[in-house]
């Protein structure tokens, strides 16, 4: 771990757990009230210029979303990651779109995929990937994708036995769709 990364932690006035440290790499967990302060000081005083990503882990067992901000310095030599836990119900996270404009896009994605609210983000209610999604946000772990897929898109009839001759004899006059094509020599 280089000195610059060391100084971010040693010069901060609050507690932080180091999750992993390595050459040019530091991952810390802090309380969520200190996140903005740490992000700002990392950018302004310690040359962490680039926001690479905001990632989320849905820890449904602990009823939290673990957000991780991944920063990189201007030379691309060291990576600094900050994690914090936010409660899962009505999750609200302050936006950092005015510090790194690229965060506006990342936060839009998290809002669509996890339902996390970023008050102050001007574009968070725009569609990111899904068009007109009406269910629970799909990447949350309490969203049952298999059940949704079967309910919405259906399922093809499965084989009842494995002998191909019997199977073909059984199904030669059947088709899944209610409106069958005239011939199905396919």
């Amino acid at each position: 771990m280089d000195k610059n990364l060391q100084r971010i932690i040693s010069e901060s006035s609050f507690e932080s757990d180091t999750i992993r440290e390595d050459e040019g790499y530091l991952h810390v967990r802090v309380s969520r009230v200190h996140v903005l302060e740490l992000l700002l000081s990392a950018k302004q005083r310690f040359d962490m210029e680039t926001l690479q990503l905001i990632s989320v882990v849905d820890r449904i067992e602990d009823a939290v979303f673990q957000l991780t901000w991944i920063l990189e310095d201007s030379g691309g030599t060291s990576v600094f990651m900050i994690s914090a836990d936010y409660p899962r119900e009505n999750c609200t996270v302050p936006t950092i779109g005015d510090i790194w404009p690229t965060a506006i896009l990342f936060e839009r994605e998290l809002h669509e995929m996890y339902g996390i609210d970023f008050p102050g983000n001007p574009r968070q209610n725009e569609d990111f990937l899904l068009e007109d999604w009406r269910e629970l946000p799909p990447m949350r772990r309490d969203f049952d994708t298999l059940e949704y897929s079967l309910r919405t898109y259906g399922e093809r009839r499965k084989r009842t036995h494995t002998d191909p001759r019997e199977y073909i004899a059984d199904s030669i006059d059947e088709w899944d769709t209610p409106v069958p094509m005239k011939d199905f020599e396919r």
Binding site: L130, Y153, G154, D176, T177, M181
Partner: peptide
Amino acid sequence: YDSYNTLNILDR
């Protein structure tokens, strides 16, 4: 087959 966003049966 269990994706929330891809179709399962195209000929529908």
